[in-house]
Design a protein around this nucleic acid. Structure first.
Ligand SMILES: [Zn+2]
Ligand SMILES: [Zn+2]
Ligand SMILES: [Zn+2]
Ligand SMILES: [Zn+2]
Lengths: 170, 170
DNA sequence: GGACGTTATGTTATAATATAACGTTGATCA
DNA sequence: TGATCAACGTTATATTATAACATAACGTCC
């Protein structure tokens, strides 16, 4: 079976996710045009599938859901598209899940840090220079020179925390 | 071929790593005895192999190097041993590398954050409550309730930075 | 003592994630 | 025209991890 096109995350604030997708695709088109890189049909389709929700999406979900029109596709095609999308800051990889999420602010390139809800799986980018500053300070203390980092913080998002207090773990 | 039993990390401060291994094994024995959990021969051997250096070690390196005396072993055995060692805080997993490192201070249980050198691959645990405090503050701002996190910071360690300034990337 | 539970390990097979290597196509342009 | 290039297709395989079931070793309860 193809994986279900999950409804957007639970919680009171469920929204019209088609707008999220449309916005993401439009921004991607604009950015790629501006940067003179080629957002091909394949890459656009992969981006659309990454944006099927605000949860991380696995490569093989994309592969299995790909059939645009009538086409199946194979792992290298999708991994290449993901590489392109990551290079261009349109998608981030969540290392601890082997999965991918659409970037919510691709217009300025960045490495992102994440809050990840263990209940609804929603991912939010942590928007803060404070983290970088904290790490830089610690790094200086041991003469470590930072180049990049993986920061993935798990817990309950507001909605899930309010809803349940206790019933979730993982 | 079996993977090479790598010499300890490069850098001026190369040390007698046999002592690191011996210490780690002794501490593991003491802790397991104190906690009344069973550090079996298999688990001890896996721990020894994780400690073959200060670099992360991959599960299949352990599987391939295992043959203690004469025995080969299979993935489930090693993954189970790694699960035991992680549950007991003797080993940490590096998510972004799919690899494992020995814990340097197993006597008090903790989730660790890491500095990882992209040149010599040395891993050091970041010892600081400041990181946790920074994240807690950000989390409170968006009503996120943290349960655990993956923090893996890449760059150059002191020795590698001094040695080369520029010649490494990755 | 023997039925049973428990913990750890063995064994077989396979799932899930990712890449290597090489071939094809279609656009561009000297 | 044919060299070059970017993107994609295709086949195969590498790498990482787990499911499912069998066995062994040991203690304990009657
Ligand atoms: Zn949405
Ligand atoms: Zn949630
Ligand atoms: Zn050492
Ligand atoms: Zn180094």
């Amino acid at each position: 079976m193809t994986e279900t096109q999950k409804a957007c995350n639970p919680g009171p604030a469920t929204h019209d996710h088609r707008r999220c997708i449309a916005t993401a695709l439009r921004e991607a088109e604009d950015l790629c045009r501006a940067r003179a890189v080629n957002l091909t049909a394949t890459r656009r389709r992969v981006l659309e599938l990454v944006w099927q929700g605000h949860e991380p999406v696995k490569a093989y979900q994309i592969i299995n859901n790909f059939r645009a029109g009538h086409q199946a596709t194979k792992p290298p095609t999708v991994y290449r598209a993901l590489d392109f999308l990551m290079e261009n800051g349109l998608v981030h990889r969540i290392e601890s899940l082997n999965a991918f999420v659409g970037c919510t602010r691709p217009e300025n390139r960045h490495q992102a840090d994440f809050f990840i809800c263990t209940a609804c799986h929603r991912v939010d980018e942590i928007d803060s220079g404070k983290i970088a500053a904290t790490f830089e300070k610690l790094a200086r203390q041991q003469n470590f020179t930072i180049s990049h980092k993986t920061v993935e913080v798990y817990g309950l998002c507001r909605a899930c925390h309010e809803k349940t207090g206790e019933q979730f773990h993982a």
